[in-house]
Amino acid sequence: MTPTGKIMEAALNELRQAISGLENAVEMRIEHQREQGEIEGEVRRIHADRSKLAQELDQAEFRANRLEEVNREVSRRLVTAMETIRAVLDR
């Protein structure tokens, strides 16, 4: 092989290696972007779940407060009824 042929062969080998490295870098970048997209999707799902759970918690707290109010009213009415019964029995 002539010196020019050897130089050309070496240059072609370097070019092949550079192209191979570039292909690997592109594949890694694509994989990274796909993984990043999956992560972003998961984060969006988590935020949606969090919003839903926060709304359900607010509703549960509202119901608990309402039950507490109703419980106090029932208690008040029972005390009134017991006092009325005692007053009737004491006559």
Rank of each mutant, 00 (worst) to 15 (best):
K6P: 01
E68I: 03
R76S: 13
M1L: 12
R16M: 09
V79K: 06
A81M: 03
Q17S: 11
S75P: 06
K6Y: 10
S20Q: 11
R77V: 12
K6G: 10
T84H: 09
E23P: 00
V26F: 03
E61T: 02
A81P: 00
R63N: 12
R72K: 11
E68R: 08
F62E: 14
T80C: 14
R29T: 15
G5P: 04
L22S: 14
L53K: 04
E83V: 00
Q36V: 10
A48P: 02
N71E: 13
E9F: 07
V79D: 04
R76D: 14
L78C: 11
T84K: 07
R77S: 09
E23I: 05
A25V: 06
I39H: 03
E69G: 08
K52R: 14
L22V: 13
M82A: 13
L67S: 04
H32A: 15
V88F: 05
E68L: 07
R34G: 13
R44E: 15
L67N: 07
I30F: 01
L78W: 03
M82K: 05
A54E: 14
E31T: 13
T2A: 05
I7K: 11
N65M: 05
R76A: 13
R91N: 03
S20L: 10
F62C: 12
H47L: 15
E61L: 08
I7C: 10
K52L: 12
S20F: 10
N65I: 02
L67Y: 05
A11H: 12
Q59E: 12
L53M: 10
H47F: 14
G21C: 06
I19S: 07
V70I: 08
R44A: 10
M82H: 08
H47Q: 15
R72C: 05
E56Q: 04
D58Q: 09
A25F: 02
E38K: 09
E9N: 04
N13Y: 09
E35A: 12
R50V: 14
P3V: 10
H32I: 11
R44D: 11
R77Y: 11
R29V: 07
V74N: 03
A11C: 10
A87L: 10
R44S: 14
L78Y: 06
N24D: 12
E9Q: 09
H47S: 15
A18F: 02
A18V: 05
A87F: 02
Q59P: 02
V74K: 02
I85Q: 00
A10R: 03
R66K: 15
E40C: 02
A48S: 03
S51F: 12
D90P: 00
M8R: 08
E73L: 04
G37L: 00
I19T: 07
Q17R: 06
K6L: 13
E35C: 11
T2P: 00
L22Q: 15
R16N: 13
Q59K: 02
K6E: 08
M28N: 15
D58K: 10
A48D: 05
G5L: 15
R50P: 03
L53T: 11
N24M: 06
Q33R: 08
T80M: 12
E40P: 00
I39R: 01
H47R: 14
N65W: 00
R77C: 07
N24F: 07
A64G: 04
A18R: 04
I46T: 01
V70W: 00
R91F: 08
R63P: 01
L57K: 02
D58C: 06
R76M: 06
R63T: 07
R66I: 15
E56N: 01
